[in-house]
Design a protein around this nucleic acid. Structure first.
Lengths: 219, 219
DNA sequence: CAATAAAATTAATCAAATCTAAATATTTTT
DNA sequence: AAAAATATTTAGATTTGATTAATTTTATTG
């Protein structure tokens, strides 16, 4: 059996690897992400290495092996399907689904996942706009940019909301700034100033900080 | 935080106490129920005692305190609501819900439980016929007897199916021998012989072993 | 009621996952 | 390129929950 701790480490390494695909992942980054000490990470990573989940050599960081990535994607599949289910079928608000899914993802059976996947109509994206890996571990990739980097003019679709700040998510849901909404940047004040956007037939002004957590599909 | 292990011990003690309300619960019984060594039970029970969850004195067995019983009933509430939800909303077969609920009960939030409780219409019984404790810890009690001890004649309602043997549960579901079904004992062969029953407009013959896992409401 | 069997406890270990403090590498800065 | 700063690892300890083996207590039985 793969313990919850092992699953959490693999998920974290996968995430950090995605954010920075060229470098290997440092123990400090993992420690920060999981909020544990660096020493704990070194210890766990040695275990993951002997388990064949990561490639590791002292002071050089880690990379997931194919096996490790497969396990990570399975957990991410579970996480995102549970999130989608909590939102769509149980009516959870957007800012509550991440934490709940983080706990449940480790304890739900394959059968449970298959049932909710069917009930949801085999969704391809979770409520934040993250792609849901398929059962065989393939995951949709697409180009996106934070709204804060988009110049005025042109229409875009919101692809994804960052799910790290739950309070911000609650605000975005309230504003109806959700994935698949068509959006236009009307004006962008300099020096990280406020951004005027138009969507759902009306204009709104949001801060740069908020806009940097909204991603839009490009091309 | 109350650990999963602590929750499991309290649940087990509650169950054993229900089965035999006069005696205190022995460490051996707990060990058997949880499939751990007797030494582990002694260790944990000392902890539960210092936590104020049980009353314990060496070689004399344990009894839940009011506090311990309250925690046990909370977990049982979670367990039974999850079971009901798995059956009613996700279409799980009767023999799969217990194990899944046993894992999930420790990791689901109060909010999740409240939402499914509402969606299910605040059910009073789970699919096996166990009463679901209310939020404040009250639980419906009623008189019942195993079908194997019922003499021919008279009509009864199935109140509960024993949920220990999952294969047997699958058989009972197949036979449509479910809680709230009206049933009549037509004939009972001596020496734990087969029992002829009538329900849903037809007659069936079942073994004594099977009948001893079906309980009917009396009075 | 003493001998034996069964139940329960104690003692000593183990494993997973964590921590702090100290030591060692690596990177950055001057 | 040496000094300083940062990152990483090692060493040793802790907690939780489990184990086996040995011992002690309680219950049974001839």
């Amino acid at each position: 059996m793969i313990s919850q701790a092992v699953q959490d480490y693999l998920k974290s390494i996968y995430k950090l690897q995605q954010e920075n695909p060229d470098d290997s992942v440092s123990t400090t980054d993992i420690a920060k992400d999981l909020d544990v000490s660096g020493a704990s990470v070194t210890g766990m990573i040695k275990r993951l290495d002997t388990m064949g989940m990561v490639d590791y050599s002292s002071y050089k960081g880690v990379k997931l092996t194919e096996k490790g990535e497969k396990v990570a994607l399975e957990i991410i599949r579970f996480h995102r399907l549970i999130e989608t289910y909590l939102k769509e079928m149980l009516g959870f608000p957007l800012d509550k689904i991440h934490d709940e899914a983080c706990r449940l993802e480790h304890h739900i059976s394959e059968e449970f996942i298959e049932r909710i996947n069917k009930l949801l109509g085999e969704p391809k994206f979770d409520p934040h706009g993250h792609p849901i890996p398929s059962k065989d571990g393939t995951i949709i990739e697409y180009e996106e940019k934070p709204l804060s980097e988009i110049e005025p003019g042109g229409e875009y679709y919101i692809s994804r909301l960052s799910d790290t700040d739950q309070k911000l998510l609650a605000y975005l849901e309230l504003m109806n700034l959700m994935p698949n909404i068509k959006i236009k940047v009307i004006d962008k004040a300099p020096f990280k100033g406020p951004i005027t956007i138009s969507y759902n037939g009306s204009e709104k002004i949001i801060g740069n900080e908020v806009a940097s957590n909204i991603f839009v599909k490009i091309q």
